[in-house]
Design a protein around this nucleic acid. Structure first.
Lengths: 176, 176
DNA sequence: AAGGACATGTAAAGTGTTACATGATTGT
DNA sequence: ACAATCATGTAACACTTTACATGTCCTT
């Protein structure tokens, strides 16, 4: 169900095509809710048939630009306020960490350094965006708040990786 | 693919039945990779047929206790060292946060307070476990390291929620 | 004129959830 | 005896990924 509300929410803020939405998922949105174009396009057609979104413009190459209807925005509001949040998350990096005991200490440290590096790059990317991006729409202002969550999470992930590296016998601070 | 390695990893540390594994997922493992018994039992039968796990004991009510074979442990090692990690995660709470601009400030604050409360309860639970649980097997020692990741992340989530509450006009520190 | 980006779609396979289904054992 | 827990399984449906499929427009 979440994908449809993700699309409705994005189309409540700005009108966009499926192609634009796909890029959005590849960039920011996919960090918390991945989706491919093969899932997005059929869902848009469903939402359109249900009257939750409407076509506001057509462009070259069959491009269709959608925006959420009043019903669509109401559906997002209902979801946010009445439908209980699914709190549990799915994280393969953390799943893998449960099994670090099956690796040699050196292999485990390699994993933890990769983990740290990945989040460090995220963090660098987020800070870059913070520096050069000025949110304009209401949706972008909220995205800016979520971006900050990414910063907090990445910093926590890096701090944990450093702590875990000590547990796995890392004394140096290589690749920090 | 991840579920099979989660099961193989758990059964590399301790022999367990599908029922035991299901409880494991309801407790610790499900925090990072949820799974129900209806997914676990068929996967165990597949792993058994493939020779990656074997039955070590049978008990009352058709209980079957499994453990990973040498091949099974090798499969986990291969996964951890050779198969690239899927870094992106799936988090409905963060997805919802993208759309807080569609709520009234008071509704947004309610969501953020619920968010903070949920992570605070997680954190309390984690600290409780840290206090009374002494890891014994190698797998449990690694789980202890992952538990610490939960602590870091919950603390970061709470810190972010407090920051976000300020953005959404919260001055008091209610429900902290 | 050619390559890359734009643009949309479907089909098949794989993964995950909910609901259905059954029965044995243990503790009170 | 009854209730709770233990214990396993399947079926239908929903969601997600990968692969297939097609064609247009823009820039150099």
């Amino acid at each position: 169900m979440s994908l449809r509300f993700a699309l409705l929410g994005l189309l409540s803020d700005q009108s966009m095509s499926g192609y634009d939405l796909t890029k959005r998922f590849e960039q920011s949105m996919g960090n918390v809710w991945p989706a491919r174009h093969s899932q997005i396009y059929p869902e848009l057609n469903k939402l359109n048939k249900e009257g939750l979104i409407e076509i506001v413009a057509e462009g070259p190459r069959g491009r269709k630009e959608y925006r959420a209807t009043e019903d669509g925005r109401a559906a997002v509001h209902h979801w946010l306020t009445e439908i209980p949040t699914e709190w549990s998350i799915r994280s393969e990096p953390m799943l893998r960490s449960f099994f670090l005991w099956m690796l040699s200490p050196e292999e485990a440290r390699t994993y933890l350094r990769d983990y740290r590096t990945w989040f460090q790059q995220r963090l660098d990317g987020y800070n870059e965006i913070k520096q050069y991006w000025t949110p304009e729409t209401e949706g972008e202002k909220a995205s800016r708040v979520v971006l900050e969550a990414g910063v907090y999470q990445a910093e926590a992930a890096i701090a944990w990786a450093n702590w875990a590296l000590e547990q796995y016998g890392d004394t140096r601070d290589s690749d920090a």
